[in-house]
Design a protein around this nucleic acid. Structure first.
Lengths: 147, 147
DNA sequence: CAGTATCCGAGAGGATACTG
DNA sequence: CAGTATCCTCTCGGATACTG
């Protein structure tokens, strides 16, 4: 209840896997290219419209809700809230509540979250550095289609 | 005409930027956290539901359309076609047509595409390796909410 | 401040049928 | 084979209003 589920993703068909002590990661061939692989929804949380940007913003350090809203420009309260819940559920983001008045809630990255955020950031760096080249490619493509 | 545009993204408001010889990348603060930054749509092509998976599949080498469909399990013709067009427009993927009968079309990565795909792959590796841990986190989160 | 609840439109995305 | 065109559904996601 409460929120609209971030992703139902039928946890039932994933079986117990790591719940057993026997969990040897090598035994389970998680493959993101496979439709049914549970890694798919997780990747989508990271690479969805807002998830990745949230992680990149959190690389700068812990951040509060409205601070994040400002950092990730364009995100709505609803989407930020939803993204944070999904990432928290995946163990990528930590939500820490300080029961003061006014309430203070801080979001930060778990170690896993930091690893992921770093990779995401490296990807974004490549992208931002290549933007001039990309804009040219887009223009060429469009004029070729039009001409 | 032809396809539904991958992303209109009003190239007009980007101005000429790299079209001029003066393009010094350092002059242009592309920032993916900014709503209006043209890097946003490009990132979304890479990290959208299918774009990233296509890139990862293409790391294994050039691939034909239906081959890609099989590699990226779950993708529809329409979405694969759309994703490939967007990536081609961004200069991330190359489409090569061999006018034989039957027609043979091969998709491959540009140098930029390879850089991006490698980063994406590193991210996915982290994810796949962490899946057992993530599944536990999800279960804990869910049972905490239910209990 | 830090969210949740509800409503609603736009578009993502799937299924099917068709073309070169 | 390699797509495009069309239809249609369902979800994403924005706007607004409200709560602790």
């Amino acid at each position: 209840m409460s929120t609209q589920q971030p992703t139902p993703a039928s946890p039932a068909d994933v079986r117990d896997i790591a719940a057993e002590g026997s969990a040897d990661p090598a035994e389970f061939p998680f493959d993101v290219l496979e439709v049914r692989c549970p890694s798919r929804p997780v990747l989508e949380h990271l690479t969805g419209r807002w998830g990745g940007l949230v992680l990149i913003a959190l690389r700068q350090g812990p951040s509060r809700f409205n601070e994040l809203r400002r950092l990730v420009s364009g995100v709505s309260e609803k989407m930020l809230s939803q993204s944070l819940h999904a990432l928290e559920r995946d163990g990528i983001v930590i939500r820490e509540v300080h029961s003061t008045i006014p309430p203070r809630v801080e979001y930060s990255l778990t170690p896993l979250g930091e690893q992921a955020a770093d990779k995401l950031w490296e990807l974004v760096e490549i992208l931002e550095d290549s933007m001039p080249q990309i804009l040219v490619a887009q223009r060429d493509y469009d004029s070729a289609a039009a001409g």
